[in-house]
Amino acid sequence: MPKGTRPVPQPTPETQHFWDGTREGELRLQRCDACAHVYFPPRPFCPKCSSREVSVFRASGKGKLASYIINERGHPAWDGPYSIALVELDEGVRMMSNIIDCPQTPEALVLDMPLEVTFERLTDDITLPLFRPLAAGGAQ
């Protein structure tokens, strides 16, 4: 996968902890101190109860494939068809990502297959969380 042509995220003060985490090889989520709700994407308050008392924690990095498409029309950052996936993390939040170390085919990309996070460095500041099949990459 050619690097450097993906759109590069620009962190904001409210999301900086997430991108600091991926740079250090951690997937960080937030949990409400008042109601224990775990949420994503980042913000400095709980979207369920509006409490400003929230904490950042390291997520398991484990999840499953909730849904996906395979883009056949091409993108400057990919050589051929590639999957855009929705990953349901074990902590209960859903995030968009790509599934790597796996053929980009309907036969190989099976809904609900277990996944684990892996990291791809884009720039000095930004490392993206990607996912791979748990069996293929092995548990950490």
Binding site: R6, P7, V8, P9, Q10, P11, T12, T15, W19, F40, P41, A66, S67, Y68, I69, N71, R73, H75, A77, W78, Y82, I84, A85, L86, M95, M96, S97, N98, L111, L122, L128
Partner: peptide, 29 residues
């Protein structure tokens, strides 16, 4: 694009190109 919006940070880097790659995402589920 890759920007400071939440879409820019948490969707755009994974390669969506317009509605055919986004609106379609839920249907396999």
């Amino acid at each position: 694009g890759g920007d400071g919006s939440l879409q820019g940070q948490f969707e755009a880097p994974y390669g969506p190109i317009g509605p055919p790659t986004l609106f379609t995402l839920p249907v396999l589920r």
